[in-house]
Nucleic acid binder design. Sequence first.
DNA 1: GTCTATAGTCAGATAGAC
DNA 2: GTCTATCTGACTATAGAC
Lengths: 226, 226
Amino acid sequence: METTDTKTHLLDVAEHLFAEHGIDATSLRKITSRANVNLAAVHYHFGSKEGLVQAIFARRLDPLNADRLRRLNASETAAGDTPPPVEDLVEAFIDPALKRLRKRESKHFMKLMGRIYSDPSEMHEVIHTRFLEVGRRFITAFGRALPHLPHEELVSRFKFLVGAMVMVLVDPLSRENAPPTLAETHCDLITKETPLNHFVTFLSAGMRAPCSVPASPKIQDEGVPS
Amino acid sequence: METTDTKTHLLDVAEHLFAEHGIDATSLRKITSRANVNLAAVHYHFGSKEGLVQAIFARRLDPLNADRLRRLNASETAAGDTPPPVEDLVEAFIDPALKRLRKRESKHFMKLMGRIYSDPSEMHEVIHTRFLEVGRRFITAFGRALPHLPHEELVSRFKFLVGAMVMVLVDPLSRENAPPTLAETHCDLITKETPLNHFVTFLSAGMRAPCSVPASPKIQDEGVPS
DNA sequence: GTCTATAGTCAGATAGAC
DNA sequence: GTCTATCTGACTATAGAC
């Protein structure tokens, strides 16, 4: 009990602090002093700060992605030979993340997770590797559900979908007793929690939209309306 | 010429490095050595590293937001008494950012800009303040164009819109000679540039979607399909 | 305005006693 | 496994010569 406790306690505390202040801005000293363990404990258990970071991601990321793939598979078998409806695909991708955002246990991690998408730090590669399969599977599934859509536009739309999710992950729990995050200052009313159906409605409609026409087809070429 | 040159040269170099490696990870030493100026120059011209960061944002952010508001106003006067179509609002918000992403001049800044949305760093407040008016104006405009939409759902959708934009800002130019960013590994084909009409089509369709119905209206209450 | 030199701080990491 | 004590390096910032 005692050794495991220190280790997971360090994971919990570090996860929380990383989510609140960022990885770079969180020193091992802050982590270990808040966890009431010795500074050297991090190096004993994880080898380095980087090792700690990777352990944090390993602990949460695999179950999250497994959950997404499980639900994707469920939709596909339920739909039989036809591709599953776009709504189900959106839900299979978003809901596992949203569920965890509500759970006290992985709340902070999901915020950290969202931040990683736009982080230039070096441990990106590990995260990317873990995400690669999921991304591919969902792009393929969306492509089957929307066969008329050119691949390039499909990829754009998947990026938009991921972006929408990330913005919500990063936003809502904000730093405790801190100025509101950007998306919150945008609005007069702070929405506490973005419900799944908001995602499904918005993103499914966007996914289902007809293909874009190129901006300048031939006529209306840079023409100024008079 | 000589003093202005050093100052703007520092702004340019710092902007580039911040975008590539992040603000925290970029030391004044790296900036000044790449700019071929002395370490003390930053403190002479900007007082501190924070001063440098703020100068970078001040230089680019105000024109960007002014551009967005100008185009919003243009759409509104063109539409007369009726609210402008959703497509125009999306374009007024997205295109100024997208245009700058293509321009060599502010390319790096736009990536940095995108990253700020999910950054927990302290100079957030300044950015928020500069963005506040734009966010409010666009939410109001979208609300007028979509009067049937409850405010909460409107806010969710605006968050999704911002998220889609940020994901594209952060992604495409990636770090030079570095592993591809997350959105790129998602797909088999790396799209070089997300065109405006992909945004407009996707986001307008999402914005125009009918209101979401609450997940559990009364029936189907946690019911497991058998 | 620009430079050198350095003060002062804090970071991640490690050796070795217990 | 845990701790104290310490090393080494990097950082921001400043004082003062030119």
